[in-house]
Design a protein around this nucleic acid. Structure first.
Length: 281
DNA sequence: CAAATATCCTGATAGC
DNA sequence: TGCTATCAGGATATTT
């Protein structure tokens, strides 16, 4: 569930207190959360490292360590990171990884909680020229960290018969957009999400690019979206407020704020999609 | 080759 | 009340 705005919110919070702290102990109780490399190797490469920076690429968190290695974290559907200043506080259900951060003796903890265990952590083999871990080299451009322009979208859309929403969600093309923001971007751009990417006009592409930047930045300002069921919470347990600004997502059957028509729900690529049939052509 | 579908997993919710 | 079925949707592997 966490998409770019939620991950960026957590990144900023992590950067606030984690930089300069040293990893004193690593406790892994859920094997599935560390699955790309042997557990002993993960722990060995992380222990005694000091955090020098916290970055983000799409929905991935990148925690830079003092030996130039990178701790990569993806929350996937249900993962949450929790800041716990008191290690004595009981560990909640579905906590799979705990980093005890010093320097001693004032230990604070970073806890990784993930009921569905889709999320993961690993230590990267190193970064490429863009600063992206080599394991993530297949990922597309980040619309917030890098430029994203109409010619970029034209190039990505060429010959693509898929729905524009599917293209927006394709992490090998553009990173960070998930189901919620894909719908919201199409709504603000006044383009129907089912529209084939290759058939878009230049003005429509311009509107989609502008809407991408506007929606993501607005959502970051609101610290992301916390839905009723999916329980996104930030590092300090706070809720996002962007759900109060959704134009279409989760609003099927309700009136469009712009025109009063009923917002429709359909399925694109096996996922729910929401749009206003009047505003989005 | 692109596009569609299956897979991982738990918790919330709908329906009986 | 309590059971089962369905849905939620991130990335990746597999099938079409």
């Amino acid at each position: 569930m966490p998409e770019l705005p939620e991950v960026e919110t957590v990144r900023r919070q992590l950067a606030q207190w984690m930089v300069g702290r040293r990893v004193e102990r690593v406790t892994v109780t859920g094997r599935r959360s560390v699955r790309r490399q042997p557990l002993e190797e993960f722990i060995a490469r992380l222990t005694n490292r000091t955090v020098v920076d916290v970055r983000r690429w799409g929905k991935f968190l990148l925690i830079d360590l003092d030996d130039s290695e990178v701790l990569v974290i993806h929350l996937r559907m249900s993962g949450q990171l929790r800041y716990e200043p008191d290690p004595g506080v009981e560990v909640e259900r579905h906590t799979h990884v705990i980093l005890a951060l010093g320097p001693e003796p004032e230990i604070v903890e970073l806890r990784f909680v993930d009921p569905r265990t889709f999320g993961e952590m690993f230590i990267s083999e190193g970064c490429d020229a863009r600063g992206v871990p080599v394991e993530l080299a297949h990922l597309g451009r980040d619309p917030i960290n890098e430029q994203f322009t109409e010619p970029d979208l034209e190039q990505l859309s060429r010959g693509r018969r898929v729905a524009i929403k599917t293209l927006l969600l394709d992490q090998s093309k553009i990173v960070g957009i998930g189901n919620i923001y894909g719908d919201e971007i199409c709504a603000l751009a006044r383009v129907r999400p089912t529209r084939r990417a290759e058939s878009l006009t230049k003005p429509q592409r311009r509107r989609i690019v502008a809407a991408t930047l506007e929606i993501l930045n607005e959502a970051i300002e609101e610290r992301g979206s916390s839905l009723k069921d999916q329980r996104y919470r930030d590092l300090f347990g706070g809720l996002g407020t962007y759900q109060n600004h959704h134009r279409v997502y989760g609003r099927a059957g309700l009136a469009c704020e712009q025109c009063g028509a009923q917002v429709k729900r359909t399925v694109i690529g096996g996922r729910s999609a929401h749009f206003c049939p009047t505003c989005q052509r």
